[in-house]
């Protein structure tokens, strides 16, 4: 496993849909408490349910999980969960911007948007991780991460509840890693 492409990263971005809550929860439960990078998580979620997901992730997480407000600064060691019914973008000044613009791939938040904006801002100094999911949202965004030389990890489709999302990414480019959830945890803890 190669982790030497960048000496340090500015951010980790994780996207997922169907089945991804339990994977993200597992990652956050096993990540080292002194993890120094910010983690930005964009999961497809029900538009009208504002609470529950955040509380669920915080139950076991070793890092603080927050649903950011617009213009919040991004800080290392924190997890930023895209709020329901808002797109989440990573800005040049290391802040988060939210948006109620049109849905993308029937989704708001759109994983593609979060990955793409992070790729534009962080370029090679980011890790993009795409997890299990039932539609193609996220694949194009991960492709942007790949094109900007960010480090790309796709969840191994055989470990996915629904493999449409990771397979869509694999059709577009060859990622740096195809890993199981345990492999992703191991990777992150070695950064």
């Amino acid at each position: 496993m190669s982790t030497s492409r960048a000496k340090y990263y500015k951010g980790i971005v994780i996207g997922g849909s169907a089945g991804s809550f339990s994977i993200v929860s597992k990652i956050l439960a096993h990540i080292k408490p002194d993890f120094k990078y910010p983690i930005i998580v964009c999961l497809h979620r029900l538009k009208h349910i504002r609470s529950g997901l955040l509380e669920g992730l915080n139950l076991k997480s070793n890092l603080q999980v927050v649903e950011p407000f617009d213009k919040d600064s991004i800080e290392g060691g924190k997890v930023y969960l895209a709020p329901s019914n808002y797109h989440l973008f990573v800005e040049y000044d290391s802040t988060i911007s939210l948006s109620t613009e049109e849905v993308n791939n029937h989704s708001r938040p759109s994983i593609d948007y979060t990955f793409s904006s992070a790729a534009t801002t962080y370029r090679e100094k980011m890790v993009g991780i795409i997890l299990t999911g039932a539609n193609r949202d996220g694949a194009m965004g991960m492709f942007e991460v790949h094109k900007k030389n960010g480090y790309t990890i796709v969840q191994d489709p055989v470990t996915c509840d629904v493999d449409t999302m990771p397979k869509s990414a694999l059709q577009l480019f060859t990622p740096d890693e195809v890993l199981s959830p345990e492999g992703i945890i191991d990777f992150l803890n070695k950064l």
Binding site: F89, E91, Y92, S97, S99, E101, E102, S117, T120
Partner: peptide, 12 residues
């Protein structure tokens, strides 16, 4: 306006 928004919105 936020610069990233302008890029997206003009494209839209």
């Amino acid at each position: 306006y936020a610069l990233s928004f302008l890029r997206r919105r003009f494209a839209y």
